[in-house]
Structures are given as structure tokens and as C-alpha cells.
Write a protein that binds this DNA or RNA. Structure first.
Lengths: 326, 326
DNA sequence: CTGAAAGCGCTAACAC
DNA sequence: GTGTTAGCGCTTTCAG
């Protein structure tokens, strides 16, 4: 006999309504003895609620749909970890959709798919998003948040992100404070994240009345290998300090600098963005601007479920001996 | 007007069955013109299928439920990544359940919750699992696989895992081949994974007629900090080589060795298990036994959906200059 | 405190 | 090709 509410009702000699109540722990309405007896029978029959039926009837899913729109880097993993943790605490399930790597068509497809799940809300971990997809979300009147992306042009969009402009500015100012004037920024990319960090750098430089030599800005892919390669690009420009676009970029720069017999920080000061364990291990002295992606995941869930306004995840700077006073 | 199949039917002047067919792209049965017209109307009404209703009626979910039973280490993130990728390719959704950190009661709870979702199958990423939970799964007749855990005592259980005995053996034999006899194993724990690695080590040592000094076996937690601390423990035992239980353990050992002015590999050869990027960056010369967790995720999905037998994910050894010939 | 019954939105025979 | 209709398994008024 298939373990359904109906069959349990039959076995217990009660109605399906009573069984439903018993299994939903609505004990305040039921006689404790019947409730207990029903649960006992359910247990014996190996009953497991059919979530689909339950959701259909009740219209509540307690599910957060997460869309990952960029798998290349690793930060989404920490964000997911935070989401999972907080979702569990708030008694929500998490369903994850993979949308490839900034593939717009596929993202649209994925957003539509997520919408089919009648989730409580959608969390979109993205490098970028286009108006087309936003329109779908808005039309569906489904609560959503953009994680790790914010758009100064569209302050009305709800996001949870690091403040990348502030990050770039903070790192730059730190170096300026220490007397540096020829400061490079290395390994950022053309995504909004990279551009915002660059903008912060430019703003700080300009505010300090420092001129920026275009050669001091080196694009890259945030990677370790790339960091090593980029070192060659910054040589010969008399830089005294460099902002590494990511922790891996910094690791690569350090590796290459060592190989070229450049002494750090005497000949070159390095500060790194996204400083995490890798930098800590390769070079515990490295000053870094760190973001807490786990926290970003946690806050995202809170923010979504409580309908709070957009949020910047705070950034902290870990001052170590990698920056020389000049 | 709520965008349901019924309302679309009304708007299009057809039956709900026809709408259902059109929206499920059963175009072989429909007149192309009506199919197209219906999809057009659905689009305009902002229709999104109600997955709950669909699943309830069809009994098919195309969903893989993943349970994470151990959040402390990072390998699950790569596994999840592989699962997501492959699941997408096979047109399956992924729902993730977090079961804390080897909390047995909570795991039971989570298994039950996963069962409620009528998934195609369950993937359990675990450090360990108990008979109680296995019994629930078996009783529910739900296909499942244990990832990253295998139990020699229970060959009937389906698992996808690295072969930790082989890994320990492989690392040990590598050192033996290079002439080492006083070999330590450092940083493993008491989990089945750790114990299997230890067992492989012991087997290789015994096979080579080498005696093991109990002090050569140092327990730890696979961490970086711990690796540094453990270095002190192995000093004074005249070891010529060491197997580090994890990449982070190796990084810690290297750090501590350098601090103690021990020259690697002349005074001590190190080989590491789980060798990944961190080791590559901290010490590109380190010989390591590597496991591909991403691949483990990919294979798990295939294995589950195609009902294939248990599988060991192959391990490879990267020989570099961290082991000295003596 | 418990039961009867009307759906939730969709699918899948079966009929025409 | 398309319509009719009987569910899928559960929740939730509304009665009693």
C-alpha cells in the first residue's frame, strides 16, 4: 500500500484532514493521542510527504532559487556556502541553477526555469545581467536580489555586493598614505567589478593630485599564471607600488618578482584585493583588502526574505608589512 | 487573470490539454499554427509553468537531491561544481540540503527531507554515514550514492570515492622507491578517509619489510595552522621523508621547516595528498597525489542516473623535485 | 477535536 | 489534431 495521506487515514480510521494536521505537527488542534497514533502509523508505512502536492495545495514552497551565472572563479562557492547555512537556519530549501558563464541566452532560459519553481525568491550570483532578464523577473513579480553586482546607473535594482569602487579607493589611498605616487593596478578585467575597482583607483589618484600613466593599468584575468605574466608588463615603469586585482594575481606577481630578484617590499610594495587564504599562505606579510563572500551569502538570504534594501558587504583591510613607507 | 494553463486555454479557445501539449513542445502532435499561437499567448500572459503541479501529475521531477554532510573542508565545493555541470547537461535540477557537520540526528532529518522531494536520486556527500540513515534510504527505495566515502565492510553500498587506501599506498611506495625507510605520515585524522590513507601507508611499509615507529604517525586536522604545529612533532625522529595528509598540511610543514632552517628536500622529503593549487603556488616543486573532486561530482551524476556500480575516481601522482633520492 | 469536500495547476489516457 | 476528464497527493475552509 503506497504510503499516502489517504492510506494512512484509512489505516488509522480517520480522515485525510486529520492525518494532514498530525503530520504537519498542528498539535494545538489535535488530540495528542490521535496525533501520536497517526505519526506512528505513518512511520511504519515509510511515509514521506510529497512536496509537490503539498506545495501545490498550500502555495508555499520555502525555497530559495539560486542562479549561478559565472562558474569560472571561485567566489560563488563561498557565497553558496553562506546561503546554504542561512537558508537552513531560516528553514528554507535551496535549489541551484547553473547558467553557464555569462551566456546571456542561457541565463534567460535559467531565469525562466527558476520562475517555474514558485520559489520564495531568487538569488542571482552574477558577473553581469541584462535588461531582458531583469524584465522577466520584474514581470513575474518575484522577489530577487543580484549578488556581487551593482550598477551605479540603476540604484533601484536590489543588490548585495562588495563596494568595488570603495575597495579600489581604499587600497589606493592606503598606498598614497604611505608615500607612494607611482602606483599601478594590475590584473583587473573589463567586467563591472574590475571597472569599479579601477574607478576607485582613479578617483583616489586624482583626489591626491597624482597623474596616472596608462601603462600602470594592466588588464588580466585575476589568475595566478596571469599574475606572473603581468609582472613583466609593469617592469620598467618605475612603479613603487602595485595593487593586485585579486589574491591570485598577487601570488603570481610575488612569484615573478622573486624570480626576477626584485626584493619586496623594498623595491616594490604590493597590496592585494580579495585577500584570502592563498595569499595568507604564500605571503603572510601581504597587506590585503578582504571581502567576506560567505557573509555575502548569509546576508543575501536575510535580505531577500526580509525584503531589505540593497546592501554593501563591508570590506576590511589587513595591514601587514608588504607596503613600505617611502 | 492568473497565468495558468486553464486561462491560456480560455484565451486561445482551446482545451487545457492542447495548451499543455503546446507548452511541453509536443509539436509532433500539434498543428504548428496552434502550437505557435498558444505559446504566443502564454508569453504575453507572462506564463510560467507550475513545477509542483507538473511534478504531481507526471510523477517526474528531473531533480537530483544533494546532501552535504560536512561543510568544514572545501572539497564539497568542487564536487558540487561537477554535479551542477553534469546535471545541467543531463537536464536535471539540483536541490541542495545542508546537514551540518557530521551531526547524525540532523543528517537523518535531512535525508527524510530530501526524500520528500521525489527526486530522481540522492547524492550524499559525507564524511560518514550510519546504518540508521542508510536504512531510511533503502526503505524508501530511492536511488542514492555515497560520495567520498567507502566502506570496505560494506561492498554492497554504492559509492563514488577516491581510493584512499591506494592513495596512501601510492604515496608511500613512491618514497620507498626513492630509497626512503623512515617515513612519516602527518596530519591525517580519525575519519574513514584518514584511516584508509593510514592503512595504505602501513600496507606499503609492511610489504617493503619496513618497521613503523608509532611516533611517525601524527594525527591532525588537515589544516594549514595544524601543519605548522605538527612539524615540531616529527622533529627528532630522524625521518627522511613525510607524507602530508593534505595540501594544507604540506603547506604548513613547509612553512615550519623553512622557519627551522631545515632544507627541503635534502634534509626532508615531502609528498602531499590532495595536492591542489595551494601547494602548487606555495611550492611548485612539491610531489603530490591529486584527486579530481570536480570529476567526482560529474561522475556521481552519471553513476546515479545510469545506475552504474560503485566507482573509484582515479588518482594521479605529480612527481616533482620535492623527493630526494637517497 | 474531527470530517467532508473543494480545489491547487497540470498531465495523460481515452475518445472523437 | 484536439477535447474530455479523471486524477496526482495534499491543504484548507466550512460544518458539525
Amino acid at each position: 500500500m503506497k504510503p499516502t495521506i489517504k492510506n494512512i487515514a484509512k489505516a488509522a480510521g480517520v480522515s485525510t484532514a486529520t492525518v494532514s494536521r498530525a503530520l504537519s505537527n498542528k498539535d494545538d488542534v489535535l488530540k495528542p493521542s490521535t496525533a501520536k497514533r497517526i505519526r506512528q502509523i505513518a512511520q511504519e508505512m515509510g511515509y514521506h510527504k510529497n512536496v509537490a502536492a503539498s506545495q501545490l495545495a498550500s502555495h508555499i514552497t520555502n525555497t530559495i532559487a539560486v542562479i549561478i551565472n559565472y562558474h569560472q572563479t571561485n567566489f560563488w562557492k563561498d557565497i553558496i556556502n553562506g546561503i546554504l547555512q542561512r537558508a537552513y537556519e531560516l528553514n528554507h530549501k535551496v535549489i541551484i541553477f547553473s547558467a553557464g558563464n555569462n551566456d546571456s541566452a542561457r541565463l534567460t532560459e535559467t531565469v525562466n526555469e527558476a520562475l517555474e519553481h514558485q520559489a520564495t525568491g531568487i538569488l542571482l550570483i552574477s558577473g553581469k545581467i541584462e535588461p531582458a532578464q531583469l524584465k522577466i523577473l520584474d514581470k513575474a513579480r518575484m522577489p530577487y536580489r543580484l549578488i556581487s553586482i551593482y550598477d551605479q546607473q540603476h540604484p533601484e535594482q536590489r543588490f548585495i555586493s562588495s563596494d568595488n569602487v570603495a575597495i579600489g579607493e581604499k587600497a589606493t589611498n592606503y598606498l598614497i598614505t604611505h608615500g607612494h605616487q607611482k602606483i599601478g593596478i594590475v590584473g583587473i578585467d573589463h567586467s563591472s567589478t574590475g571597472q569599479q575597482r579601477l574607478f576607485g583607483y582613479q578617483r583616489a589618484m586624482t583626489a591626491a593630485q597624482l597623474t596616472i600613466n596608462p601603462h600602470w593599468i594592466c588588464y588580466g584575468d585575476y589568475g595566478y599564471q596571469n599574475g606572473q605574466e603581468l609582472f613583466e608588463k609593469i617592469e620598467g615603469h618605475e612603479l613603487t607600488a602595485v595593487i593586485a586585482g585579486s589574491d591570485l594575481t598577487a601570488a603570481g606577481l610575488i612569484k615573478a618578482a622573486t624570480k626576477h630578484h626584485i626584493h619586496l617590499p623594498d623595491q616594490l610594495s604590493i597590496i592585494c584585493i580579495d585577500g584570502s587564504m592563498i595569499c595568507e599562505i604564500t605571503n603572510p606579510t601581504l597587506t590585503s583588502v578582504t571581502q567576506d563572500f560567505y557573509q555575502m551569502g548569509v546576508k543575501s538570504v536575510d535580505n531577500l526574505l526580509n525584503d531589505e534594501p540593497s546592501l554593501f558587504i563591508p570590506t576590511s583591510i589587513h595591514e601587514r608589512s608588504s607596503v613600505k613607507n617611502i
